[in-house]
Every structure is written in structure tokens, then in C-alpha cells.
Amino acid sequence: MLVYLIRRLLYVVPIALAVSVVCFSLVHIAPGDPLVSILPPDASQALVEQMKKSYGFDRPIPVQFAIWLGKIAQGDLGTSIATSRPVLQEITKAVGNTLMLAFAATLIGFTLGCFFGFVAGYFRDTLVDRIAVTVSILGVSVPHYWLGMVLVICFSVLLPWRPPTGAGPGSSAAWVWDWEHVKYLILPAVTMSVIPMGIVTRTVRALVGDILSQEFVDALRAKGLTDWGVFQHVVKNAAPTALAVMGLQLGYLLGGSILIETVFSWPGTGFLLNAAIFQRDLPLLQGTILVLAMFFVVLNLLVDTVQTAIDPRIRRG
């Protein structure tokens, strides 16, 4: 177990390095000059050169990369061109908001997905199964920015139950765990939970169907276990795969929430990324992408570790 963990940790180093190269170069491949947005259109050539120098854009790209990487190693992601605030500070704030949204959505999606999945798997080819499958297909197929807007229309405009946008009363107030704030979380979290819900439902349904058709389930019944006892065995057999799928979904949610965060004006990483792209804010963009990519790496590490702890067969591999 320990050896496996250490080996798995060592894998992270080359992955992280590769990720940083891709993050850095992708942004440089994209067209557009970051300085255009902060300089007046009639700025003199000398001013442009001076600005370039002060941001380090005048040096060759590999050198820029080396400097960037060196600074990251010291925990400095640079300064945002648009806001002149440290990128790290901007990201930390946004990451907090996104994490909250992503965890809330995963919690909802995983709970509902497991419920539907188990029901569908246990009652295969019945009406309940068809309903669960339909719900899961709808969940995966419905575009979530559209669903977000529909929810806003239904529950904020037609029935003013929930606030439509933002992350709390007042503009940039800090998050507090009270109803006034949680209220703002509900609609975006529900919108976001729909895809993981659908995917988890389908995965769990297939898993449960597969497990129930195995001979050991007969053997468990043959030794006198009740349906509840057999169910516990099914859960433990399904758990590693279901958790892995949930982990990946959480990863997608952490990075893939640009649309939802924009629809609901949720000040998370997606919102930040969106702003950085439109303002050609290179340091902010690079920093945000890197942080999001590293989330994936860490998350996969966590999922692998948990899986190894649950399923004894992986340890030998």
C-alpha cells in the first residue's frame, strides 16, 4: 500500500511538468496581444516597448517559461494585467467559490445518481428502470446553460423563490454559511449536478446489473443473507468504480463550469477564466488553467488512493 502510494506520488511530478508546459504554450499560441486592452489605442511605440519589458513579454518564449516556472515554484503566479492584483490572490478567491459550487453539485449528483442507479439496477427492465434511464439520458444531454436559464426563469422570475445570480447578498461580501447565502448556491448547484447525476446513474445501473448477475450473489443468498445483507455486498463491490466516476466528474465540475458560472454570475474560476480570456490577461489565464489542471492531477491521485484502500485486487498491480 505504502509502496504503491509513493510510486503513485512520483508519477505526479512528470505529469505536473507536462501540464505546465501545455498551459504556458497554449496561451502563447492563441492570437491577440494582452497589452492592447490596457494601453490607450494611441499609445506611442516607446510606451508599448516599455510595458512589454515590464511584463517580460520582450524575451524569448522559453526564457519566459523558465522565469514563469521559477516564480511558480516560489508561489508567485504573476500579476494580473487587467486588475494589477496578484494572480494567486484572484485565483484563491475564485477557487473557494468554485469548490463550494462543485462539491455541492457533486454531492447532489452523486446522491441522486446512486439512488437512481441502484433502483434501476435492481429493477432492471421494469417501468422504474425505464424512468431512471430516461432521467439519466436527459441529464447528460440537456445543455446546462439552457437548463440554468430555464431554472432562473422558473424559480427567480416567474416564482421569485431564489435569487437569480451572484454568490450572496451584497456584491463582494465574504461567504457565510447561512440561509441568506446558501439560497444563492441552490440553483447553480442543481444545474451543475445534472450531468454527474446522469453519468453516475448509468454507471451504477450497469455496475449493479453486472454484480447481481454474478454467481457470488447466489452464493450469498445460499448462505442465508437477507436482501439487505446482499445489498451491502453489492454496494462494496460497486463502490470503487462509482467513486472513480464521481472523482472524475468532480474534476470536470471544477474546471468545466464556465457556462454555469457565467449564467449565474457565480464568481468562481470559470467566471475568472472567462474574464481573463476576453481581456487577454495572460498571467491570469495561465495561472487559472494551471491551477485547474493541477486540481485534476490531485483529484485523480485521491481517487486512486481511495480505490486502492477499498479494492484489495488493485494493490497487487
Binding site: E215, F216, K223
Partner: peptide, 16 residues
């Protein structure tokens, strides 16, 4: 009454 099965690898729960 209890039963033993043909293929013990399949009849035992792999994660217990």
C-alpha cells in the same frame, strides 16, 4: 441446507 458451487472464484465475493 447449504450449497457449494462449481467455480469458487466466482462464488466468493472478491472484495471480502
Amino acid at each position: 441446507a447449504s450449497m457449494i458451487f462449481q467455480e469458487p472464484m466466482l462464488a466468493l465475493d472478491p472484495v471480502y
